[in-house]
Design a protein around this nucleic acid. Structure first.
Lengths: 154, 154
DNA sequence: CGAATACTATACACAAAAGTAAAGATTTAT
DNA sequence: ATAAATCTTTACTTTTGTGTATAGTATTCG
């Protein structure tokens, strides 16, 4: 389970925008030098975020990017979903069907339930963390989330 | 955030072993035909699991693979950790440092805290789910885990 | 022993993701 | 208008991950 490069750099750009909120927009050269990537690559990242309607762009002399909403109203889930694949997508079984036409586990597909249940759980967590929480370095947020198993393992 | 092929097929093999537990060992040809992959690829998967000491192998006529422990004593976290990269590894910052020598966020590295906190949280969850839970299709396990935010978003 | 069965290891072909290059389109200031 | 600054798009190269092919080693059975 890997964090993709798009998720990594994309989230960084969102954090940068959250911090600059109120101090004008951020340009691609600023993203690029700030994160140590090329300008076209920064452009690719911001284009993705723009298509997800998380940021808006302005061209020309005083152009640049801004958040479309307040950082407190953008969840970590929205950001990651726009940048990468969800843990379990509808195409999952088709992708990992091996050399068979359809998934060999069509009936009683335990593995599918695993990923689906897991993704739902992760989604619940990521939805409860906002970009503002992250920008302010409030990482205790994860520790404040409680995980408890009601039933005992056998 | 993507589930890798190794994680997908590797977990499937572990599930198969959990179900065959007590009914003798499982051979590579059995894994291969059961999951729709080639025999050498099944071998690659089981070799990884073997190096992680999750399974043991026997050669020769009546050879095959078995779990080294009871399915109830193997956590989902152990399995996924052995097959793929953790969400946040120690090499993370070195990997995503862009064209700079070191991570541009050495001081006040918010992004690092995000992934670290997130990984810790996921780890807590995956640790509480055992291979036996999965093999028995007890997927309610994820729904039985509670997620609550103590503080309010601003 | 020798043949069959099964695991093991190395090297290779293919596909997807990461990141770059180059040319184009839009806005603003002069 | 023109030039400078900025976003946008397409195509390309490099790297990484996926899966296969091939040859080798160990064990059992007749």
């Amino acid at each position: 389970m890997k964090v993709t490069a798009l998720e990594e750099y994309g989230l960084r750009c969102m954090l940068r925008l959250a911090r600059s909120s109120g101090h004008g927009s951020v340009t691609l050269p600023e993203f690029a030098s700030g994160e140590g990537v090329s300008i076209p690559y920064a452009g690719k990242l911001l284009t993705i975020l723009k298509k997800a309607r998380l940021v808006k762009a302005a061209r020309g002399r005083h152009g640049g990017y801004e958040l479309t909403r307040l950082a407190g109203q953008i969840s970590l889930k929205e950001i990651l979903d726009s940048l990468g694949n969800p843990v379990f997508s509808s195409s999952h079984c088709a992708k990992y069907s091996g050399e068979n036409e359809i998934c060999v586990h069509t009936d009683n597909c335990t593995i599918r339930s695993v990923w689906r249940g897991f993704e739902g759980f992760i989604g619940d967590v990521l939805e409860k963390v906002s970009l503002a929480d992250l920008a302010e370095g409030k990482m205790e947020i994860f520790h404040e989330l409680k995980v408890e198993k009601k039933t005992n393992a056998r």
